[in-house]
């Protein structure tokens, strides 16, 4: 398995490839991933220009460990295949497919990625894929999309187009996204891949943004698409395990390991009933804490 399949992706920041000032140094804001956009943010007549900028940025700018995902143009355009050639030649880490509706969409991109990897002498399998679901049909097919490719590390909700397809609008309350969010996180977990939430576009409503992030964190999402560096610290704060959680998770892991050796299945830690069902969750908190740089322990 590609070692980056499960990497930390709390914040995935969109950047318009048409704008050199945006793509030259986003690492200073320390997002976990950047999504270099060739699609919606780029004007139709500048699609070619964005590719040259993308290629040279990927080749020459040291993004200091930040994952570099490229959002290609939709499969309903004549642009996406050249987008993939350019991205793979540049050495991107992953390709984001917009408007994904079926497993076949993912497989088409997978074939083009493999072809480009061979053409540009990139190790086959190095480039990962994520799929954005932007329609009712895409959300309904979430599970088959999640299972469509061994390169697919996750799915992301794209709320703008999705609500348009539902014939509603973004309200700011999240009520119109509830069904899709719940369905997608269940599908992603069933398939063993990650799940990412849509952008929050009202930059003047940071309280609303915080509530939105708290909601999706509680639902089990792995991270959120973001559009502005100001959103990064809030996402990281909410998605990074707190010291109290880390200490409790350590106790749970140690106690389960110890009690298992003694043949004891159920016991209490800090007054809470604990059994083997808590083990994976505690390990996951420690792994997330370690990846977030707040845990150096040995568990």
């Amino acid at each position: 398995m590609n070692p980056n399949m499960k990497r930390l992706r709390r914040s995935m920041m969109f950047l318009n490839c048409q704008k050199p000032s945006l793509i030259k140094d986003p690492y200073v804001y320390a997002p976990d991933s950047i999504m270099l956009d060739l699609e919606d943010a780029v004007a139709e007549r500048e699609k070619d220009a964005a590719r040259y900028s993308l290629y040279h940025a990927l080749q020459e700018i040291d993004y200091r460990g930040v994952e570099r995902v490229v959002r290609i143009n939709g499969l309903d355009t004549d642009l996406w295949k050249e987008d993939i050639r350019c991205s793979i030649a540049g050495g991107c880490d992953a390709v984001r497919i917009p408007k994904t509706e079926t497993a076949k969409d993912v497989q088409l991109v997978e074939e083009a990625v493999l072809k480009a990897e061979k053409e540009f002498h990139v190790e086959p399998g190095r480039t990962l894929i994520m799929a954005a679901l932007e329609s009712a049909r895409g959300v309904m097919n979430a599970f088959e999309i999640c299972c469509a490719s061994s390169r697919l590390f996750g799915i992301a909700l794209s709320g703008g187009d999705y609500t348009k397809d539902l014939q509603t609008t973004i309200s700011g309350t999240g009520v119109e996204l509830m069904g899709a969010r719940q369905h997608m996180i269940i599908a992603a977990r069933a398939a063993g891949v990650q799940c990412f939430d849509t952008v929050f576009t009202d930059l003047n409503n940071m309280d609303g943004f915080r509530k939105d992030v708290e909601t999706i964190h509680a639902m089990g999402f792995d991270g959120k698409s973001i559009i502005n560096p100001r959103q990064i610290p809030i996402v990281h704060e909410i998605f990074t395990p707190k010291q109290k959680e880390i200490i409790f998770a350590e106790k749970v892991v140690r106690e389960i390991d110890s009690k298992r050796a003694q043949g004891i299945g159920v016991f209490t830690v800090d007054g809470k009933m604990i059994d083997i069902a808590f083990y994976d969750g505690a390990k996951r908190i420690l792994a997330l804490a370690r990846a977030s740089g707040v845990y150096k322990g040995e568990l």
Binding site: D48, A49, Y52, S53, Y55, H56, E60, I61
Partner: peptide, 20 residues
């Protein structure tokens, strides 16, 4: 940056040849 200058020169040249 140098990478932007390269990108813009290449883009203009390929546009002048209508190659995409």
């Amino acid at each position: 940056l140098d990478c932007t200058i390269k990108a813009r020169v290449e883009c203009a040249v390929y546009r002048a040849n209508e190659m995409k």
